[in-house]
Design a protein around this nucleic acid. Structure first.
Length: 404
DNA sequence: AGTCCACAGGAAGGGCAGGCGA
DNA sequence: TCGCCTGCCCTTCCTGTGGACT
């Protein structure tokens, strides 16, 4: 007991006396808005031009923004709209900006939930279930109407939502101004999927993408510059981080120039160094960070899933461990049934099971493709999109959660 | 050319939790 | 409180399908 206490005291006093690696870790966080956004000058300029009529109380065009993950779409949009807000406020112009991310599970992943969430943002509470959708629309319209002036709705990861619920919702949104008297409402849709508009009805497509902006991926040099800017704020100034930054940038550039990944790598490398008690971040920390960033993302995604989905993931991974490379739908369903019996969980039908497989495919946890084995049937061929180590970790993690 | 497998995935509907108005 | 409505999750029933086999 006494030993333990000294150890705790040692840890805490060590922490206090040691010079911290991080000065301001939030500069490497998800919600950090830097003052200068490097290599996005053109996109910022274009977006500002499109949104400028707002300041005359005119409705700006609806905008569609494309680009793969970590190309600065959300950041630029938030930056430009917040600048717009500042100027509007200074000149007593009424502009309201609302941001929703459709990937938020059980918050904005159906038409009803998204509308309910928007109502909440607009200051009107709508119950989580029970109301007909058209009355939620009415609540939404009246909440917007109270705003006056111009309302900008930023809908992030809109491709994920539309693939799930179809484009009727977008059709209603594009006609929103017909239902509004005092307010002009514009939509800024953000999509990771460049071919997303293929899914849309022609009418929706033309009215939603009155303007289009494309965000190209960053190259390694650009990523380095971004990281250098951030590291100036995040870390103590007396150390040299060039090697570390170069490595983070190179790794992220391989993954279609994803700046978020580069920043995550740098942050996690710093955290690992700090935890080890090292005084300097070096390239070995980045290598460790690479594994950790991937596994944390997948583990987080899995932890927030409902029980049945977890059981399906568990069965897939367990079967993959046996079969090494790939598994087929039928095999996994059998494994799933066994797992459910063990867990005294209700066994869902193959139909529902098939839908859950599609969902975890969309989450990027597995890769499934439909193959035909001739007279031996048509089925999904499932491979893992995560490393063996991580798969083992997930199995252990779920075992712990399920108590066996 | 026709058959047949083992599913994929669409359509319809049931049960449940929860809201609303009378 | 009650009857009726809704969205969500799920089941049941069904049609469609690519290609090995006959």
């Amino acid at each position: 007991m006494f030993m333990a206490q000294t150890t705790i005291q040692e840890i805490f006093s060590d922490y206090l006396t040691k010079k911290p690696l991080f000065l301001n870790k939030s500069a490497l966080g998800d919600n950090y808005l830097p003052e200068n956004i490097a290599h996005r000058e053109e996109q910022i300029r274009q977006l500002s031009i499109i949104l400028a009529p707002t300041l005359n109380q005119e409705k700006p065009s609806n905008i569609f923004i494309y680009g793969s993950t970590g190309t600065g779409k959300t950041l630029v949009t938030k930056h430009v709209t917040s600048e717009l807000n500042k100027i509007a406020e200074k000149n007593n112009i009424v502009v309201s900006v609302f941001y929703v991310n459709c990937k938020m599970k059980r918050v904005a992943d159906t038409e009803y939930r998204l509308l309910a969430y928007l109502c909440e943002l607009l200051g009107k509470n709508v119950p989580a279930t029970g109301l007909p959708t058209d009355s939620v629309y009415k609540a939404f319209y009246s909440a917007i109407e109270e705003r006056k002036g111009v309302v900008l709705l930023i809908i992030d990861e809109i491709d994920a939502l539309i693939k799930k619920i179809g484009d009727d919702f977008l059709y209603n949104l594009t006609r929103i101004n017909q239902n509004l008297m005092n307010v002009k409402c514009s939509i800024i849709g953000i999509s990771n999927d460049l071919s997303f508009t293929d899914y849309l009805d022609a009418r929706v497509r033309s009215s939603l993408s009155e303007e289009e902006l494309i965000f190209p991926p960053y190259n390694a040099m650009q990523l380095q510059e971004i990281l250098r800017e951030r590291s100036k704020v995040a870390f103590s100034a007396d150390k040299n981080y060039d090697g570390v930054i170069a490595k983070c940038a190179a790794l992220a550039a391989q993954e279609h120039g994803d700046a978020r990944r580069a920043i995550d790598l740098l942050r996690v490398a710093g955290e690992l160094a700090e935890r080890n008690g090292d005084t300097q971040v070096d390239e070995s920390h980045v290598s460790q960070a690479e594994d950790k960033v991937d596994s944390d993302r997948i583990l987080d995604a899995i932890k927030t899933q409902p029980k049945q989905t977890k059981a399906v993931i568990y069965s897939v991974f367990l079967k993959l461990k046996e079969n090494e490379r790939l598994v087929l739908t039928g095999e996994v369903y059998d494994e799933y049934k066994t797992a459910c019996k063990k867990l005294s969980l209700k066994i869902l039908t193959q139909r529902r099971f098939s839908d859950i497989l599609s969902e975890i495919d969309l989450l990027g946890i597995i890769n499934a493709r439909i193959i035909s084995k001739g007279r031996y049937g048509r089925m999904r061929e499932i491979t893992s999109s995560v490393s063996d180590d991580l798969r083992k970790k997930v199995i252990l993690c779920l075992k712990e959660e399920f108590y066996f």
